[in-house]
Write a protein that binds this DNA or RNA. Structure first.
Length: 190
DNA sequence: CAGCGGATGTGCT
DNA sequence: GCACATCCGCTGG
């Protein structure tokens, strides 16, 4: 459970990676305190250049270029001037794709079960900012993902906050653990 | 529960 | 130069 998922896990179709990330454990290691563990309960798949909702839709730009690079890296961006969002790069090197981590639930904690409910809160709670963009998720470093054998029941819906993306806004590319209290939004939409 | 403002990087004009 | 963004906490009804 302590080993980081290998690059082969990320080097697959984005939807596959998104669904399989549900139930996995995010491990955040800090300079001088014990690691934080949080189970991933909600994600969204962003499919690359053809996906009108993806940051990769206009080809590689200074911000989005990392989505075109090798899988298993962290893509962090700032939204609305004040919140960070974390994504994991997927697909093979040269093909854009990423999974947005929308919600997680702290493990072994008496904390509020909704403390990491929302992409901005995930980053705030785990102390992830722009400077972490590009870090390698496949080594036992600042941030990685581990498998503790959890096999959740998965639900799907359209993605949140991408109404501008035309028909792509309706694609069911949001995946979440059914019935989990930390899933964000008013409630799982359709 | 709808409405709204905060504060800034990003990418197009 | 400028409109807008993969959000969230607070307000008033």
């Amino acid at each position: 459970m302590t080993d980081p998922l290998p690059v082969a896990f990320y080097a697959r179709p984005t939807v596959t990676v998104a669904r399989e990330l549900l139930g996995k454990v995010l491990v955040r290691r800090w300079p001088r305190r014990p690691p934080t563990h949080a189970r991933i309960v909600e994600v969204e798949a962003y499919l690359g250049v053809r996906d009108a909702a993806s940051h990769a839709r206009r080809g590689p730009t200074p911000r989005s270029a990392i989505m075109f690079g090798p899988p298993g890296r962290l893509y962090v961006y700032l939204i609305y001037g004040m919140h960070h969002c974390m994504n994991f790069v997927t697909e093979t090197d040269g093909v854009a794709g990423a999974v947005l981590i929308r919600a997680a639930q702290l493990v072994n904690s008496q904390a509020d079960p909704r403390a990491l409910s929302g992409p901005g809160k995930v980053c705030a709670g785990l102390g992830i900012e722009l400077r972490h963009k590009g870090l390698d998720l496949t080594t036992e470093g600042t941030l990685y993902v581990a498998d503790d054998g959890e096999k959740p029941r998965i639900g799907a819906s359209s993605r949140i906050g991408v109404d501008y993306a035309g028909t792509w806004s309706k694609r069911r590319l949001r995946f979440f653990i059914r019935g989990n209290a930390a899933v964000s939004g008013p409630r799982p939409r359709v």
